[in-house]
Simulated assay, not measured.
Amino acid sequence: MTSPTTRLTDAGVSIWLDDLSRSRITSGNLIELITDRNVVGVTTNPTIFQGAISAGEGYAEAIAAQKATGASVDDAIFAITTTDVRDACDVFRPIYDATHGVDGRVSIEVSPELAHDTEATVAQAKALHETVGRDNVLIKIPATKAGLPAITETIGAGISVNVTLIFGLDRYAEVMDAYLEGVAKARAAGIDPGGIHSVASFFVSRVDTEVDKRLAEIGTPEAEALKSKAGVANARLAYELFTERFSRDDAMALVEESANVQRPLWASTGVKDPDLPDTLYVEELVATGTVNTMPEKTLEATFDHGVITGDTITGNYAEAHRVMDQLAEVGVDFADVTRVLEEEGVEKFVKSWRELQQSVSEALDAA
């Protein structure tokens, strides 16, 4: 019998691991996950690197080397994280080649402190791309208002981008437009758009966390009946929007001229409510041409007991619309939900970034 992760792959979902550390690379664990769990990519963020470096995870030698050069804390972080991503890119290179650049991708994020600075975001995106120096790297840029023009500019320079921190459909529509504008800009500059890839990371579990808190405050039976339904419904409508947007004439024209679609990526798929099935955000978000980036705990749960029965998105648009309408009827302001989540998302990544700086500072001092 095939494993659930194999069935998920066969259903058109690319499985990416939402984690990376130096020891995961050097121990061969990453190769094992590729071989045994159908993993075809990796995403990282400041929280992941902070956890790995503060826990050690094979960084003593790298820290000592940075100390010897007199590197600043930020320079040390840049050197260590780009090295990890470069090495992971090399591990995934055969998958990148086999899928013609669709998978085999490793993401690295610009500093979250730049989330509201377009020019600085573009400059760091280019620096990260150049320093990693691998075709299969994806540069993560947040979908803030300042991030949108940075996405266009970075794509226009021929750099592949993972757009992160997307919570609402309105912003998602702007993200897809920013990508297409960037592709058109690259083409105008003589850059082959066929070499540019992008994913749009649409967050799921954090939506349920915020909405369920508001439903509990409302407290009516109608509100209680909607608990833990918003995240999946919102993501399903994002896929509907994706199929509509890339069916429009301007997008079709670019795709016909060798450009790639910007695939939806389901992020924040680790279940935070212990009362929910631990594979909820995998099983309920299956559709061809998507990516699901999973923490290892979710990946292992899916491999162990995930129930993959094929597409669970495209036949459920009407129900997803009903859920969102019902949320509005009971008094949930979803526009405010997404505003709060974006602000909190940036704040959480900035907090993790500063904790990462503190961890590296302490390690440099102790080296």
Rank of each mutant, 00 (worst) to 15 (best):
R22M: 12
S14G: 05
D36H: 09
D19S: 13
S23D: 15
G28N: 01
I25Q: 07
T35D: 08
T26P: 07
I25W: 01
S21I: 10
T9D: 00
R37C: 09
D19G: 14
S14W: 01
G28C: 04
R22P: 06
E32W: 01
S23H: 10
T35R: 14
T26V: 10
L20Q: 14
T26M: 12
E32D: 10
I34Y: 01
S23A: 15
D18M: 10
V13W: 01
E32R: 04
L17E: 08
G12Y: 05
S27L: 12
T35Q: 08
R22S: 11
S14M: 06
I25V: 14
D36Y: 05
R37V: 09
S23Q: 12
I31C: 00
D36P: 04
I25G: 09
R37I: 09
D18E: 14
S23G: 05
I15C: 10
R22E: 08
I15S: 08
S27Y: 10
I34L: 07
L8A: 09
L30V: 13
N29I: 15
I15V: 15
L30C: 06
G12S: 05
L17F: 00
L30I: 14
S23R: 06
T9R: 07
N29Y: 12
T35C: 04
I25M: 03
T26K: 13
A11H: 03
S27F: 13
I34A: 05
I34V: 11
W16K: 05
V13Y: 03
R22Y: 12
I15E: 05
R7M: 01
L8N: 06
S14V: 02
T35I: 00
G12K: 06
D36I: 02
T26G: 03
D18S: 02
T9S: 05
E32M: 03
N29K: 08
D10N: 10
L17D: 07
I15R: 00
S21P: 09
D36R: 02
D10G: 04
R37F: 07
R24V: 13
A11D: 09
L33T: 10
T9L: 02
R22F: 05
T9A: 08
D36G: 03
S23W: 03
L20M: 09
D10I: 11
I31F: 02
L30S: 04
E32Y: 06
S21F: 11
I31L: 02
I31K: 06
S21E: 10
S27E: 14
V13K: 04
L20V: 06
W16A: 08
N29L: 15
D36S: 12
R37K: 11
I25L: 13
L33H: 02
R7E: 07
R22K: 11
L33Q: 02
L8I: 13
G12P: 10
G28D: 04
T35W: 00
D19P: 08
G28M: 04
V13L: 09
L33D: 01
S21Y: 04
R7W: 01
L17V: 09
L20I: 12
L20E: 13
R22N: 12
L20T: 11
G12C: 03
